[in-house]
Amino acid sequence: MSVIVAKELTTALTALREHGDARLIQGGTDLMVEINFNHVKPTTMISLRDIKSLRMIRTDTPGIMSIGSGVPYSVIEGEPVLTAIPALAQAARTVGSPQIRAAGSLGGNLGTCSPAGDTLPVMFALDASIHLSAIDSSRVVSIHDFMTGVKRSVRQHDEIITAIDFPIINGWQGYSKVGVRNAMVISVASACLVADHENADVRIALGSVGPTIIRCRAAESWLKTTLDLSTRSTISLDVANEFGRRAAEESSPIDDHRSTAQYRRHAISVLASRLLRKAYQ
């Protein structure tokens, strides 16, 4: 058999170490497309589908919600994530179709590491941490260090993404995604904005407008020097638009068959402005 259906993480990790050609499969929503479209020829497969420990949502560490890499989006859409990390729940709801959301998971989004991965901007805006395990080691990597390029990450062959830690913030967070259809659409541009009221901080991350997810650090710091966010007062349209303009400046989109660089940049400026105003409504 060249398919190993693991029920325990250690089984999968052992097999992964043994088979240099092995590929991991969780929901299959990315990898099976590659196989069906004749781009990948699978040899040894390790299925993570039945590993229950990857499907847990934990809140045992204060201030952290830790979501197992195999928790399907359909679960993330609802409680307890909806209340604790609403932007993640919103992002999950925009992934593909209900059928895709019942199968796909954060581990898959990270494993594929596409700049259009819907939940990645949320991880970047919330400074999420990625848990990686190998058979004889484990490490925690900041999302900012994890994704290194288009479909590239620091995950080593023998490592499995086990969970993603999201800090629970006191404040507002939102996610918006532009697609040309009202459902089931790949993002043309997306943004996640987090207003951390406790720390008087605003963070914004962009998807589909660069080789990786982009954190707009310059726009963030401009905002913090322009406004006193601790007052939590409403934000004028002018300031919001300027914030949007600056966020768009930090994006580096391309022209492709889905859209144009010019439109993507414009869309980012609109999304960033709208999200910021919503955050301080």
């Binding site: 398919v3 499969i25 299959g28 099976m32 497309v33 699978p42 019942a102």
Partner: peptide
């Protein structure tokens, strides 16, 4: 409800 085309049968 899932898409059978995206399930590797052997898994």
């Amino acid at each position: 409800a899932v898409c059978a085309c995206l399930v590797m049968a052997a898994t």
